[in-house]
């Protein structure tokens, strides 16, 4: 596998404030990389460093094995970017902006593709940008991005203004790009979106990557939710290693189990005669909650699951 995006020990200071503190991420070819973390964690900052519009204080960052600062223009010929907050020129129409962005790449505009995207995203390209709603401005940027024949898509909360129908369309295009072997770096607060689209996820907090890996790998780090009814009451459950958030329900108990202790816990409870066993896999949200809330609240982390 070859890395399309690679950062090593990326650090960015804003004055005395350390916004990025040694960020290492790798996005491989043909992969959708989910980039998540609480507000102000440093997602947009990382992305802006990758785009060569902020200069890293320390560390290396490369895209297509070129330096993101020094070779920005070369890199951008093959990159398409969509920010979360799209601000356009009030006097230009959406169509004009799309053409402007496409022409900037130097390549010919693929008119068929452009029309298809405009149609799919239900965008009226003849309206002035001043009259567009937030979602519509975002669509302009999305159309311009997907109509460009890029090898890497950098998307910073690209769907924060889209309705669920449009979100669906967006996901189709992400899948399509992935199928064509393109890479996508997607930052998002919509975890279901990340769960659905991303092959690998990196979680950033306070400028540090605190967790990274495939979803399956990350699930190991969290807890499975169990609901169990047994013929005889389970003894000693409370003292069992890896059991948390124990709750007695009418005729059953619910609790969470650390994934690595799952085997021993199941063995223990099976001796009490299982009548009912429901398990729910840990969602990304569980994972997220646990990490977002910081160390001190690690214990009640999984309980947020609904």
């Amino acid at each position: 596998m070859s890395a399309v995006v690679e950062t090593r020990n990326l650090t960015k200071m804003f004055g005395k404030f350390k916004a990025l503190d040694g960020v290492d991420i790798t996005v491989n070819k043909g992969e959708v990389y989910g980039f998540i973390g609480p507000n102000g964690a440093g997602k947009s900052t990382t992305i802006r460093v990758l785009l060569g519009i902020l200069k890293a204080t320390a560390g290396d960052a490369t895209i297509f094995e070129k330096d993101v600062w020094g070779d920005a223009v070369e890199i951008h010929k093959r990159v398409a970017y969509v920010p979360g907050d799209v601000n356009l020129w009030p006097n230009l129409t959406g169509g004009e902006v799309i053409d402007l962005f496409l022409k900037f790449r130097g390549a010919d505009i693929n008119t068929k593709r452009r029309e298809e995207l405009i149609h799919k995203f239900k965008l009226d390209p003849t309206k002035k940008c001043r009259t567009y709603s937030k979602g519509n401005r975002q669509k302009v940027a999305l159309v311009a991005a997907f109509a460009a024949d890029a090898d890497l898509y950098i998307l910073d909360e690209p769907t924060s203004g889209l309705d669920p129908l449009m979100e669906q369309i967006f996901q189709e295009y992400v899948f399509e790009a992935k199928k064509e072997g393109k890479s996508i770096l997607l930052s998002s607060h919509i975890l279901s979106e990340v769960e659905k689209l991303c092959d690998r996820v990196g979680i950033i907090r306070e400028g540090k990557i605190i967790e990274t890996g495939t979803l399956t790998e990350l699930r190991h780090l969290t807890r499975t939710n169990l609901l169990v009814a047994t013929r005889s009451p389970i003894s000693d459950l409370n003292n069992l290693k890896g059991v948390h958030a124990l709750k007695q329900q009418e005729d059953a108990v619910s609790f969470q189990v650390d994934t690595e202790e799952l085997d021993s816990v199941i063995k223990h409870i099976s001796s009490f005669g299982i009548e009912k066993l429901e398990s729910a896999p840990p969602t990304l949200e569980d994972l997220f909650m646990r990490h977002y809330e910081g160390e001190e609240s690690g214990d009640k982390g999984g309980a947020a699951n609904g």
């Binding site: 802006r48 785009l51 060569g52 519009i53 920005a72 223009v73 070369e74 951008h76 010929k77 990159v79 398409a80 970017y81 920010p83 907050d85 799209v86 601000n87 356009l88 020129w89 962005f101 900037f104 790449r105 130097g106 940027a141 950098i154």
Partner: peptide, 15 residues
């Protein structure tokens, strides 16, 4: 200030 240069700079445009 309004973030439009950011869009331009994400394209192959010089600094």
């Amino acid at each position: 200030e309004s973030g439009r240069i950011e869009l331009i700079r994400s394209l192959p445009a010089g600094r």
